[in-house]
Design a protein around this nucleic acid. Structure first.
Lengths: 360, 360
DNA sequence: TTGTATGCGTTATCAA
DNA sequence: TTGATAACGCATACAA
């Protein structure tokens, strides 16, 4: 296997200087057509691909954006997958158990948005899991800026990195830091949702089913819930009725617990869709009717919320736009490092569907 | 804003040579504890982050894997998202229209698998959209190897890149190329699915609802369908009854067309889940019962297949494992460039649920 | 329009 | 255990 070709090889073969070869790639308009042709022929001939590292080093820019992935459950992944091709197929009954749908749609959508927007600006996206410092500042060193979900990177590390490249935090309010932030309007969204249940459906017996106590999203949503109640002149709880961990299976558990305790309120306002769907599962399983007996609402607007029966009334947050806005903010910051810290908030939409009784 | 610090700055501050600074990062065991402490202090003090490009250039390896994303619909993304924070919330009725769920779960899962496995091996993942050459060999130049979904990169370009770095193709059979391939057992899976419908449910009137004619996956699945019929002594169709484009909305259209034409067979074996779900929607909408009147089966095992009513009997392919296997193959190839071209096939599982009548 | 020469920030090879 | 120094492959300012 021959050494991989460099500018020098291409230059030699084309009978030009390396500067010209470089120009053909970077400033084609400053090279005569004849020369361009010769160089391109040499490139094809040799199978030349410019070295990204050398290019980044010389140009002092990486041309890539870093995306820092939270270290979610299941990322361990266990052993490498089996690979065989003997045509065997396992056949199994698959009852509707407490299965957790695989993908975290939220993450996927954010990633997709990031990817789309970065691509539009000619940037690549490099992804790394935020576990341990190793691979992580492996990331920081190879990108022009970084996007991270709130609470995925230890604060000390993040601060260290932020001295070097701009950082944009998605979801999570500014906590005395100087990063740029992009979030969705959790408070207003949940407030509107709450008021809708009260106003449109005449319900005054609402309870909030929360998520992890340390989630800023959950915090804001509960606050929105309280503000909604307050606006309606309903007494405010100081704590959510119950807390889950944002998963559907946990939601089911909470739902069952509620039923067993015999204290199911007229409406359950849940902090995210997965929890709401789990609650829904549990209620229906015990013969309760939604929305006739209990109203259930969610937050996020994941796909599953519109395929459930009844479909879930929820607050949709523009997940893909979250990623896009983060990239936009990052690029703006790159263009103007002295700009004051930005805080972007994306609007949400209350989607009225069957689970609140707006549609049959 | 001060110049970003380099090894030289760290070395100066710590009173050592740049070689030692480098060692502290690469071979910590070859440096005395005292020196290490001094260097680390300097690093923290200066906010030093090693340059990925310089590192890759000198080490002759990028430490990253490239993932090439197909240029799917909707990637244009339109204008940048609106960002405001005035607390306004739109509220809208959301009837169950012909909405297409947003994310392509298949892609997301493959990406996730890639990410997971790469992370386990200390590699970053760089993603780029396969549109135009520009950003694309931007990718090739900055990674140690590349994973691509079949048919996402023009063959000429791929060949060019493959001269430079190893390429692994996901989904899609070898077509005279020398790349490594990873796929799932489409043929065996669909054959097993087909035979199940015949054997367990006594159906001999089956039809195949296919996907795009140029999809290798679809081709293999139809072939599996035919093999299943053949094994059961049932006459073989030479073509699918209908073809969609693998989307749910198109599936709905096909379902409606079937009903209107008045020729709905006893069982509809669909080439993927989205198509099957669309068909399901259409059948139910016209009052037909599934599985009592018509059996519907899918392929892929996306989340939506287990939240539909009835839930979809399908062939699950391990999407996440696909990504993982691709990374494993790539790393093995990197370790042994002379290895003959590999072809990996991952096993599939037939999941028996309500839509075929195995479960009530 | 093209060529020359220097610098980019590491790693790695030798010596010490 | 540490240090000096030569690559690494490209971009770019400056000359021609």
């Amino acid at each position: 296997m021959p050494k991989t070709p460099t500018v020098y090889d291409v230059a030699d073969l084309a009978g030009v200087s390396i500067a010209t070869v470089s120009r053909v790639f970077r400033k084609p308009h400053k090279v005569s057509q004849a020369t361009k042709d010769r160089v391109n022929a040499a490139v094809l001939n040799l199978g030349y691909v410019p070295s990204g590292s050398a290019r980044s080093l010389a140009a002092r820019r990486a041309g890539a954006i870093g995306l820092c992935f939270p270290d979610f459950d299941g990322i361990d992944g266990g052993p490498a997958p089996i690979v065989y091709a003997d045509g065997r197929v396992i056949e199994q009954l698959d009852p509707p158990e407490d299965v957790e749908p695989s993908g975290d749609l939220y993450l996927s959508e954010v990633m997709l948005g990031t990817e789309i927007e970065a691509w539009r600006h000619g940037m690549a996206v490099t992804i790394a899991v935020a576990r341990g410092d190793e691979i992580f500042d492996n990331l920081a060193g190879r990108v022009d800026g970084m996007i991270t979900l709130s609470r995925t990177v230890p604060e000390g590390l993040l601060a260290h990195i932020a001295r070097h490249i701009p950082v944009v935090v998605i979801a999570g309010t500014r906590a005395g830091d100087d990063y740029d932030h992009i979030g969705t309007d959790n408070v207003a969204g949940m407030q509107a949702m709450t008021r809708h249940v009260v106003d449109a459906h005449g319900v005054r017996d609402l309870a909030f089913v929360g998520g992890p106590a340390d989630s800023p999203d959950d915090h804001d949503r509960f606050e929105g819930f309280r503000m909604g109640l307050h606006a309606e002149g309903i007494e405010l709880p100081s704590e959510p009725l119950l807390r889950g961990d944002f998963t559907r299976s946990h939601g089911r558990m909470l739902g069952r617990r509620l039923v067993e305790a015999g204290r199911v309120p007229r409406a359950l306002v849940c902090s995210n869709d997965q929890t709401a769907l789990g609650v829904l599962d549990a209620l229906l399983a015990t013969g309760l009717r939604v929305p006739e007996d209990v109203i259930v609402t969610g937050f996020d607007g994941i796909d599953a919320s519109q395929t459930s029966r009844p479909r879930l009334t929820t607050v949709r947050q523009p997940m893909r736009e979250l990623g896009r806005a983060a990239v936009d903010t990052l690029l703006r910051r790159l263009g103007d490092p002295l700009m004051p810290p930005q805080t972007g908030t994306l609007p949400v939409t209350v989607l009225l569907r069957e689970s609140c009784g707006c549609l049959a």
